[in-house]
Design a protein around this nucleic acid. Structure first.
Lengths: 138, 138
DNA sequence: TAACAATCCTACCAATTTGGTAGGGAATAA
DNA sequence: TTATTCCCTACCAAATTGGTAGGATTGTTA
């Protein structure tokens, strides 16, 4: 399951996607509008910025905005930044690979099943973007 | 990601699947053979039994064995019993549904994306069984 | 029926992760 | 030069994870 933090991230990003091209949005605005704890949201937005999904501006008239179009931010990217691996096992993860103990990867049946599962999941999550969230939310 | 406990469960179940039809297997045997902490494995097997996947026999000649054929135990079932929900959001889970705060489900774009993802994932996990793990492990 | 062999049950524990809060520092615009 | 806004470090409580300990219970067999 996605952490609450990740859900907050998605909600904030949807809001920013909605305001794409309209200039920076205040953290406090997103927080109150989307009902997210302010200081917690600060961390989240900062992480998203470090991951190059957002840009920020300080001082009056500042705030956060998407760095690229909502169509170019996939759900998979967001999940990886805030939540971590998408695969169900470390030994199957593309971005967070770790060898698992006592398992010959070439002959691990579970690993093969989890690879198939990962591919099916990624096929969706890599393709769907923030834009799709907006469009689906009618 | 699946918990270590769930990985242990799969390893133990694979072993039992391998020995399906050959009578009960000792916890201690599975533990040493699959390198799983003995007392921890006790809990796991007991949970799987309560979920009706295993049957047990006490006393000499006792142990655990699969209650049904390996072909009839899906990966989804095992994950749900030991790991919990498969969906990425509680509001999208079939077996562990919970409403999420501040979200109109009819118009939640994220929810729709996560429903699609869940369906893609379940299509694999509901279909693949312990038997498929064995077959894939050549 | 006693002894033994196995699972079952309850309780506990340390380490890690999750979901935050507090308080001030640094940059920028008017 | 002051107000505004993001940025950074540190801390914290509660929940979860990954176990361990010790005995109770049930069944088998001599």
């Amino acid at each position: 399951m996605l952490s609450k933090k990740t859900q907050y991230a998605f909600r904030a990003l949807s809001y920013l996607a909605d305001n794409y091209g309209k200039g920076p949005v205040l953290i406090s605005c997103i927080a109150s509008e989307k009902n997210i704890p302010l200081k917690f949201l600060e961390n989240i937005l900062n992480e998203l910025k470090k991951a190059n999904l957002l840009k920020s501006k300080k001082g009056k008239g500042g705030g956060y905005s998407l760095k690229v179009s909502p169509k170019n931010i996939s759900l998979a990217t967001v999940i990886r930044v805030i939540n971590g691996p998408i695969a169900l096992l470390p030994c199957v993860s593309l971005n967070f690979y770790e060898k698992c103990a006592d398992c010959n990867e070439q002959h691990c049946g579970l690993r093969k099943m989890m690879t198939i599962t990962r591919d099916a999941t990624l096929k969706i999550l890599e393709k769907k973007t923030l834009y799709d969230i907006l469009v689906a939310a009618v």
